[in-house]
């Protein structure tokens, strides 16, 4: 049994951090089923994403959903949304995380949901340096009454890992390491 405990001591991969604290604007979008208007992600999801950014010396500022909700209801592609965000005043780096949660089926007593994520990092003044990743995260919830928000929260461990890798890619490109 004791060898298993050694897993707790395995060092984590080194993070790629910015040379200096770098402000970023964070937009996390959730697309509810049957509605054109995207909404805010749960606070715990925001917090987890902020932790990912902060660990890399990026200083996130949340963009309130009231700012983008109406515009995003008509701009439904990632490119359209990034373009709209970039057109706003200022040149702060944008981090856009778009999520969509879909019920899959009940499997052996658990409720399987699929969380689809498109994550983008865009410096508005250098669009060619943008990086993007899209991926799907299967999550299993124990109870029928747990819906999209809970599925999104359950996806946080994988979402954080994948987003961290994306941010590392972008930061490494900025710092040359």
């Amino acid at each position: 049994m004791w060898p298993f405990l050694l897993f707790a001591c395995v060092p984590r991969a080194e993070l790629v951090t910015a040379r200096a604290p770098t402000p970023v604007e964070l937009v996390v979008v959730t697309q509810p089923a049957g509605s054109r208007a995207p909404t805010d992600a749960p606070a715990s999801v925001y917090s987890a994403i902020e932790a990912v950014l902060s660990a890399r010396l990026l200083t996130p500022t949340r963009v309130d959903s009231a700012v983008f909700s109406e515009s995003f209801s008509t701009r439904r592609s990632t490119a359209q949304r990034l373009s709209w965000l970039a057109a706003r005043p200022g040149d702060t780096v944008l981090v856009l995380v778009e999520t969509e949660v879909e019920y899959y089926s009940e499997m052996n007593g658990r409720y399987r949901w699929t969380v689809s994520v498109v994550a983008s990092v865009l410096p508005p003044d250098r669009p060619l340096e943008a990086v993007e990743a899209s991926f799907e995260i299967p999550v299993f919830l124990s109870f029928y009454h747990e819906r999209e928000d809970k599925a999104l929260e359950a996806a946080v461990p994988v979402l954080s890992r994948r987003l961290g890798e994306l941010v590392d890619t972008w930061v490494a490109g900025q710092t040359g390491g």
């Binding site: 049957g34 879909e102 899959y104 399987r112």
Partner: peptide
């Protein structure tokens, strides 16, 4: 257990 799900006509979250 393996379950395959094929979207023949995909469900659009913004559409009815």
């Amino acid at each position: 257990a393996v379950e395959l799900k094929l979207d023949v006509l995909e469900r659009q979250p913004t559409s009815r």
